[in-house]
Nucleic acid binder design. Structure first.
Lengths: 122, 122
DNA sequence: TAGTTGTTCTGTGCCAACTAGAACAAGCAG
DNA sequence: CTGCTTGTTCTAGTTGGCACAGAACAACTA
């Protein structure tokens, strides 16, 4: 349960949290049913504001990653029997290909973003 | 040479331009030597500010995508003989895998972002 | 009942993004 | 050389997102 926040990053703090929790959940590091730290506790340990953590939690709820209930906290949702192995393999392959050509991270992300957007528009 | 800008997008205007030009250049739609529209002309046609276009051009210059010179404009740089086919294939594979599992675009991007960051940190 | 935890509200400060206008310097074409 | 084009640099103002802060409230747990 160790999340790391970089206050000097250009990436918004809440976005960093969202990305880390989502990746951990998708990778299985946070199995369905896992209870995330209470917003106030996490805010204190990360030395950021309560509202920033809550914002991240609400984004994750909107994405269906976690479930929020008062008194119980944020719990990782059980998502079907979907096997994410193909996606993880594809990601690994892409990173390897980009690295082999010395492609900048920004450029690689741009290509994926574009492909996803084009896909979306159909 | 038709770039499209969505003023209502959460993505910054200059970033949209950067992504589109970069993708076009990487895909070969903008062959090395191609001259981009003058900043003032492009700003007028996209109905955005001159400085916003210039900012995008400068980011592209920093990434080595284009070359800027006064009086001549922005020209697409000739970058070696690198064949980007493997990367494009990898991107296509990833998008297909993500789509097959109904993975949200944000989640897919998050996985790639994380993988690139992890790669970067070594 | 008492404590925990998410929800909602108000307000403040900061900074990136965008816009606007202007002057300047390097290159191109006549 | 002259005039035009084009990127570079500067100042300045507006807007909106992000983060922070404090408080009260509602639902759930033990």
């Amino acid at each position: 349960m160790l999340f790391r926040i970089d206050p000097s990053s250009v990436e918004p703090l809440f976005q960093q949290l969202v990305d880390q929790v989502r990746v951990a959940a998708l990778r299985g590091d946070l199995p369905p049913g896992t209870r995330l730290p209470a917003a106030r506790a996490l805010a204190a340990s990360l030395e950021i504001n309560l509202h920033t953590v809550l914002h991240a939690y609400q984004v994750l709820r909107d994405e269906g990653v976690v479930e929020l209930r008062r008194g119980r906290g944020a719990v990782v949702v059980d998502r079907g029997t979907a096997d994410l192995a193909p996606v993880h393999d594809a990601v690994a392959g892409l990173v390897a290909a980009a690295r082999a050509l010395g492609l900048a991270p920004g450029a690689t992300l741009g290509l994926v973003k574009d492909a996803l957007a084009t896909e979306e528009a159909r």
